[in-house]
């Protein structure tokens, strides 16, 4: 188990290094740089050159790369080029909890909707219940999250003022202020996800309900609830967990779009502003964090397998 974790951990670090390196060079291959964008209108090429020197952008690319890599290894991602020269770490530390809160809550909301919906659709196959779940699943899948976000703001925040329309409150400001600002973005991100998961649970359950061991369990005289929750659901969840792992990472990217609608200064907004401003250190830092979340959520899912499926063990 520990040997496996170590191997996977090293693999994860290699992936993150590759992503960071790729992003580093791609940012610099694109013509132009932050200072040209800032000062080109003024036509002051002297000032542009001075700033380039100051931030080391006049040096050859490999020198910049080695410097950046060495600093990053020590946890120093540089400072934002744009604006107040805030250290990138500080920007990330402020943004990450917001994005994780949205992704986490949308994940919870999605599962709360998807698991019962999938189970109902599978156990009442071809009834009105099943058709209803299918209808709402397609509706949820077909609605772009930013559009749903706008609808939610219009109806639940503007028209009836149940929940705040924009912004974010940290958990330290209290549970309800934190939660109330997250509910709408989380619903916007989680709806499409819950539709996918509900459909997967339905088809996976239908497979499991046909198996021999379910017939054996039925022949023991067990109650329906025991059959569904203890015998069928754990088996049906095995393929679903794979998707959940990938989809959690996708929720992060959903959060990127939705953060802009709700004006939440999360990782997504940070990344988009960084790209627009050609703020190299910010983009590099943000993408490194996103890739870490992708890689480690997948690792977590592989660990989860061994919890729900006793046939999978990582000790040998």
């Amino acid at each position: 188990m520990w040997g496996y974790l170590l191997r996977r951990g090293i693999g994860a670090l290699i992936v993150m290094w590759a992503v960071a390196t790729l992003v580093f060079f791609m940012l610099r291959i694109v013509p132009g740089d932050p200072f040209a964008a800032m000062l080109a209108d003024a036509g002051d090429m002297e000032a542009v050159e001075a700033l380039r020197r100051k931030f080391g952008l006049d040096q050859p690319m490999y020198v910049q790369y080695v410097k950046w890599f060495w600093n990053a290894l020590q946890g120093d991602f540089g400072t934002s080029i744009y604006g107040a020269r805030v250290p990138v770490q500080q920007l990330l530390i402020e943004a990450l909890p917001r994005t994780l809160s949205i992704a986490g809550l949308s994940f919870v909301i999605a599962l709360i909707i998807a698991v019962p919906a999938g189970l109902i659709a599978a156990t009442r196959r071809n009834t009105a219940w099943d058709h209803g779940v299918t209808f709402f699943a397609f509706l949820g899948l077909s609605m772009p999250d930013f559009w749903l976000a706008i609808l939610l703001i219009v109806f639940l925040a503007v028209n009836i003022s149940w929940l705040p329309a924009i912004g974010y409150e940290p958990l330290s400001a209290g549970f309800w202020p934190w939660l109330s600002h997250l509910i709408l973005p989380a619903i916007a991100v989680g709806t499409g996800f819950s539709a996918i998961i509900a459909r997967m649970i339905r088809s996976s359950m239908l497979e499991v309900l046909k198996t021999d061991y379910m017939r054996v369990a039925r022949a023991k005289g067990l109650a329906n609830s025991t059959l569904i929750f203890y015998h069928a659901l754990p088996n049906a969840l095995i393929p679903v967990v794979t998707v959940i792992g990938i989809a959690f990472a996708l929720l992060m990217s959903g959060a990127v779009v939705v953060e802009n609608v709700f004006s939440i200064k999360g990782l997504g907004r940070l990344l988009i502003q960084g790209i627009l401003n050609r703020d190299y250190p910010v983009v590099q830092g943000a993408i490194l964090v996103v890739s870490a979340i992708f890689v480690f959520s997948n690792l977590l899912v592989d660990m989860l397998y061994s919890v729900i499926d006793p046939r999978i063990r990582y000790d040998s």
Binding site: D212, Y213, A219, K220, G221, T226, H231, P234, N235, P310
Partner: peptide, 29 residues
């Protein structure tokens, strides 16, 4: 089912639930 009439099926390889222990499957009835 199970109490008055027991049933044994054809496929022992697929007749036991893969994610539940033998003990759990034997004792629940």
């Amino acid at each position: 089912r199970g109490k008055s009439i027991g049933m044994i099926f054809q496929e022992p390889m697929t007749s036991l639930n893969p994610v539940l222990s033998i003990g759990r499957q034997m004792t629940e009835a």
